[in-house]
Structures are given as structure tokens and as C-alpha cells.
Amino acid sequence: MAPPRPYWKGYLKLSLVTCPVSMMPATSEAEKVRFHTLNRKTNNRVVSRYVDAETGKEVDEEDEAKGYERGENDFLVIEEEELESVTLESARTIDIEKFVPRDTIEWVWLQKPHYLSPSDEVGHEAFSVIRDAMEAEKVVGISRLVLGRRERAVMLEPCGKGIVVWTLRYGDEVRKPENYFGDIGDGDNDPKLMSLVTSLIEERSKPWNPDMVQDPVQEKLKEIIESKRKSAKKGAKPKGKGKGEEPAYTGNVIDLMSALKNSLEKKSGGKSK
């Protein structure tokens, strides 16, 4: 596989300080168990190709172009190079407009993380100045950036020697929480229940650990593939699954009290998992 090429190249700018940077997505599909589509009848790979909608003839890759529909079935071909001449500053430059205290941006606005690094030796120091000052002041930077033919607000947060750039959702891309939470009570919780639930939380608190984001299904798929590889004839039968039974919920206060007490006893009795 090809080494990860920079997904975006441009400049990071703070007032009169500018440095060349490159960026790549922080997420990747590369390690996922990937499947190809096969033709069951021939066992050959299935590939997709483009055909002309009118003539039905195959279209060569170099003839595939981006078309802007200016009328019905009337397309203006726009070349990639032409797209690059779009006049927005934010197409090439992350110009930090303002700084806000860290953690004041609700998580719900965070859309997609990217890793930003200096791309040339000339900018190492300038990059470090911007990063270290944000770190020292406990702030994140806010800017605009064109990615995937959209201009979005982005948040810049120092992360070790680099900077994480989060694209942020537009105002109308987050649904109004009032519409969902409007009917929820403010919580006149019984103090006894509160003290039980806080004890439960304390008991079950753990430090963050990447093991918490392991995927049991991926492991299982790998096992299935492995067993199929071994048995040339037929794949091992998947094991019988447990019945998915819906639990009974904890209804009233008395239930809640005894359930919370049970949780605490259960936990302190045995060793933690």
C-alpha cells in the first residue's frame, strides 16, 4: 500500500506569521477487515466502471470529468486545476481568526479530526510558536478552511508536537436539543438516591484506556476468515448465538433504591473485573 500522502497542503497563519503545513485525516479505514466484491459464478473480482448514460459505451478514466449542471442535461466541464483557482483565502490558508478557552466548544460541534504538521523546515519554529502559545494559554484556535468543496469552521488544538484540526459542524447541522430534551425534568432527586448513585460512579470510575475502544466483531471476522482458510471445503459454522432478551427496567423509587444498593454490594463483594 502507498504511504499516507498528505491529504491537504497549505499554510497556517497567525496575524503576520505564516508557515507551510500539511494535514491528514486522523481516522483511517486501512486497518479494517476489508472485503472485495466477487462474482459468485466465476470467483473473479467485480469492478465498477463508468459508461456513457446515452451511448452505453465505456468511458475512459481520463474522459471522466466534473460537470456543473447549468441547464437540464447541459453540463459545464470544470477541471481540477480550475477548482484550485477558487478565490477563497481559506482554500489554502488556515488563518486563525480567534482563540477561545479550551473546552468551551461543545463536543456536538466536532465533526472530523485531522493531524496538522509543519511541511517544511522553514516553518518548524513558527508552527511551534503557535502551538506552544495555545497550549500555554489553554485556548484553541478558530479558523475557516475549505475541505471537500465546503468551507467550514475549524478548531485547532495542540496535541503533543502537533496540532489537531477539527472541522466543526454548521449551525444548522446540529438539531436543537430543546426539541429532544424539552420534556425532561430538572431532577428533584432523592438525596439518598443521589448519594448512592455518586458512590456507584466513584466505584466504577476508571482511567481512560484505548482498550475501551476495541472491536470484538473485527476479531470474530478474522477468526471466521482464518477457519475458512484452513477448511478448504466449507467454512466452520458460526456458533449458536445467545437469545437476545430484553431486560426488565427499573421503575419506581423503591426499585431504584434497591437496584443501586445491589449494584454497590455486588461490586464491593467481588473483585473488580
Binding site: R49, V51, A53, D63, A65, G67, E69
Partner: peptide
């Protein structure tokens, strides 16, 4: 944008074919 055939200016559609 739509993907179009530069030669004819028509739109293109995707087709899935056996690679062999």
C-alpha cells in the same frame, strides 16, 4: 458535480462488471 464524459458531455453511470 456530476461525472460526465468529456468526449460527449453526457452524464455517466456506474456499472459493475466481472474483472476477467
Amino acid at each position: 458535480f456530476h461525472t460526465v464524459n468529456r468526449e460527449t458531455g453526457n452524464r455517466v453511470r456506474r456499472e459493475f462488471v466481472d474483472s476477467a
